[in-house]
């Protein structure tokens, strides 16, 4: 995982990887950002939880409605007031909302 490449995404403030349990493994923070490794460590745990819930919902939705197209899941994003965290697999990027390119970020995580 090339975190520096992730930091080149529009509005990127932080990029990180985490274990299946949600432990923060590697991270890069843009200088001057208000984010801290402690916040990232908490964020990675919520990322694992949100991906698991979204996976369950996608599976359930397809089974109940017969509507395909959700699985396999390609990511989840929480949109905060000033920044969004976009995550897929074991990697995530925090992007500033005003500069965010959600599509490019999801695509980058998909191919990472």
């Amino acid at each position: 995982m090339d975190l520096e490449k992730m930091m080149a995404l529009p509005g990127a403030m932080a990029a990180f990887t985490f274990s299946d349990k949600g432990d923060l493994q590697n991270h890069v923070l843009r200088e001057g950002t208000e984010l801290t490794p402690q916040v990232l460590d908490l964020l990675t745990r919520s990322c694992v939880a949100n991906l698991a819930i979204a996976g369950m919902e996608a599976r359930g939705w397809e089974a109940v409605t017969g509507q395909a197209g959700f699985q396999p899941l390609q990511g989840f994003s929480v949109v905060g007031l000033e920044w969004s965290v976009v995550v897929n697999g074991n990697c995530g990027v925090v992007v500033k909302n005003r500069d965010a390119d959600y599509e490019a970020t999801f695509n980058a995580l998909q191919t990472a």
């Binding site: 916040v39 395909a68 007031l81 976009v86 909302n97």
Partner: peptide
């Protein structure tokens, strides 16, 4: 979740959450 983030780092830019996105294969 954002309430918990905020208790660790006040005004970190997450709260209040505006929304969320689930990206599926086609939808």
């Amino acid at each position: 979740q954002s309430e918990i983030f905020d208790s660790f780092a006040e005004n970190c830019g997450c709260r209040p959450v505006q929304g969320w996105i689930v990206r599926g294969r086609d939808i």
